[in-house]
Simulated assay, not measured.
Amino acid sequence: MNMTRRNGLTALAMHGALIAYTLVALFPVFVIVINSFKERKAIFRAPLALPDSESFSLIGFQTVMSQGDFPLYFQNSMIVTVGSLFFILLFGAMAAYALSEYRFRGNRLLGLYMALGIMIPIRIGTVAILEMMVAAGLVNSLWALILVYTAQGLPLAIFILSEFMRQVSADLKDAGRIDGLSEYTIFLRLVLPLVRPAMATVAVFNMIPIWNDLWFPLILTPAEHVKTLTLGSQIFIGQYVTNWNAVLAALSMAIIPVLVLYAIFSRQLIRGLTSGAVK
């Protein structure tokens, strides 16, 4: 009974600490969002107050929508992020399954080679990447970003997913083979559903760096029609650095999509991070 009560109190304390940490982390975002709906005087007069009938204003969002093509920027960012995550999870899961399931000469060496990509930042090869994209005719195309982010995210995806796939019961896979299932069917219908939390973890870990990246969009896709939301926001903020209404509105439009995507994957992320930690 005492052990059960102690575990319950520990879980309650951890839950409370998690809520407190979330509130502290989201407080700057809250301040940015509420002030984006205020007049400039109200921003400096009461920055922590909610907008009311006197201070409420949409002038910042009107400026953003009239001076920048933010719907297009948002569309480009969504295409790049979703496309990159799709290929990262697809190729990462396939490679992780091969490394964890099949034993062959050089298996560990190949896995170590792929894991080296976690420690070596891809930005070191920026010049070579730019030369390859120019030669392939992919500069100022969204495919350039998708290919780069896919290569950037694969090492971490393979490292995490291979560890989870090694924990999948071999008896379950052997039973599928006895029933006549192909290796592709076993991979798609038996293994992937069991490692779904790990895949969500990989997706979240790659989603935020891809969405917030400014380096590669600035180098590979500077054209107006392929700008990402982060690049478009930074250029807009540089032009309207003293227009606080417009700056806060642009920041709000760049932040909110990340929070929505994170909330969608948060449950699977927590399951993936805590899988195997508690027996």
Rank of each mutant, 00 (worst) to 15 (best):
R6Y: 09
A136P: 02
R166A: 08
L145V: 02
L194H: 07
L12E: 01
P51H: 10
T4D: 08
A98V: 07
K173P: 03
Y21W: 09
V29P: 02
S100A: 15
M165Y: 06
R267E: 15
Q75C: 11
R45Q: 10
V139M: 15
S55I: 01
V82C: 13
L218V: 01
Q234G: 06
P209T: 02
F205Q: 05
T242E: 14
A157M: 08
F44K: 03
G92S: 06
D69I: 03
A200H: 05
F44V: 04
S252V: 00
D69S: 12
I208Y: 14
G111P: 03
F61E: 01
S141A: 04
T126N: 07
L172F: 11
V241K: 13
F74P: 01
P155N: 11
V260F: 11
R103D: 10
K173R: 14
L214R: 02
K279C: 08
G137V: 01
L181F: 11
V80Y: 09
V195K: 10
V64C: 10
S55M: 08
L58Y: 00
A203C: 05
L58S: 00
R6S: 10
G153F: 02
I120R: 11
N243A: 13
S162R: 15
W215L: 15
M14V: 01
V33T: 14
V260Y: 05
Q152K: 05
P217I: 04
Y113M: 12
T228V: 07
G92K: 09
L259A: 10
D69T: 03
I235M: 15
V191H: 14
H225F: 03
L220A: 06
L261T: 00
E163H: 05
G238T: 01
S141K: 11
P257H: 00
G83D: 07
E163I: 01
D171W: 09
V204W: 14
F164V: 04
F74T: 08
V191L: 15
I118D: 09
R166T: 04
I32D: 10
L9S: 00
V148C: 13
N107D: 03
T242Y: 13
I178P: 02
